[in-house]
Amino acid sequence: MGAQRGRDLLLKLDAAQSGSFLSVAGLRARRIALSAGTVDVTTADSPGRWRELLEGAASRSASLSGSGLFRDAASDAAVRQLFFDGSIRPWQVVIPDFGQLDGLFQVTALEYAGRHDGEMTFELALESAGALSFTAI
């Protein structure tokens, strides 16, 4: 996989849960982090007293964050309402030349900022709230 433009990573929301995803915002910076915890099963009898992990038992999660400009008033309102309601909705992340991640996420942080001589910006954080699927492109 060669270098890709960061702007090509897309964050989409299905606010109505209708199966129709729309781009939420003009994100200038985006980040996705996939993580898996471990389950330590080390005992006094472990060979050489090396740590042993239980395969396939860890909990997995995904965190998404982005900052930038909302596309329009409707996308701003949709994300803001999800935050205040604590709602969990389907989101889609398209990673160029890699794949697409689909699943349920909750908006866990929403920040607004603006300078007197600039545009209003936002920062958004999402946490996975269920099983995710990955489709290679």
Rank of each mutant, 00 (worst) to 15 (best):
A3C: 09
A3G: 05
A3H: 10
Q4F: 10
G6P: 07
R7A: 11
L9K: 08
L10N: 06
L10G: 05
L10W: 08
K12F: 06
K12I: 14
K12Y: 06
L13A: 12
D14S: 05
A15Y: 06
A15M: 14
S18K: 09
S18M: 08
S18Q: 09
G19K: 11
G19F: 00
S20Q: 11
S23F: 05
S23C: 10
S23R: 13
G26Y: 06
G26W: 08
G26K: 14
G26D: 14
A29T: 10
R31E: 11
I32Q: 09
I32K: 03
I32N: 05
L34W: 06
S35Q: 13
G37M: 12
T38C: 03
T38L: 07
T38G: 03
V39W: 01
V39G: 00
V39M: 02
D40G: 03
V41F: 00
T42F: 01
T43I: 07
A44W: 05
A44R: 07
S46G: 02
G48H: 02
G48L: 05
W50Q: 10
E52C: 00
L53F: 00
E55T: 03
E55Q: 03
A57Q: 01
S59G: 01
S59A: 08
S59P: 04
R60E: 13
S61E: 14
A62G: 00
S63K: 08
S63P: 05
S67C: 04
G68N: 04
G68F: 02
F70M: 08
R71S: 01
D72I: 00
A73R: 11
A73L: 09
A73D: 07
A74R: 08
S75H: 04
D76E: 15
D76T: 05
A77T: 00
A77L: 07
A78I: 08
V79F: 06
R80G: 01
R80H: 07
R80C: 02
L82Y: 00
F83T: 06
F84V: 15
F84Y: 11
F84M: 12
D85V: 10
I88S: 05
R89Y: 00
W91V: 15
W91F: 09
W91I: 15
I95Q: 13
P96F: 03
F98T: 13
L101Q: 07
G103A: 04
F105C: 05
Q106V: 09
V107T: 07
V107N: 04
T108E: 08
A109R: 11
L110W: 10
Y112W: 14
Y112F: 12
H116S: 13
G118K: 09
G118E: 15
T121E: 12
T121F: 02
F122Q: 13
E123R: 15
A125H: 06
E127F: 01
G130A: 07
A131N: 11
A131G: 08
L132C: 05
F134D: 11
T135L: 14
A136G: 11
I137R: 14
I137Y: 10
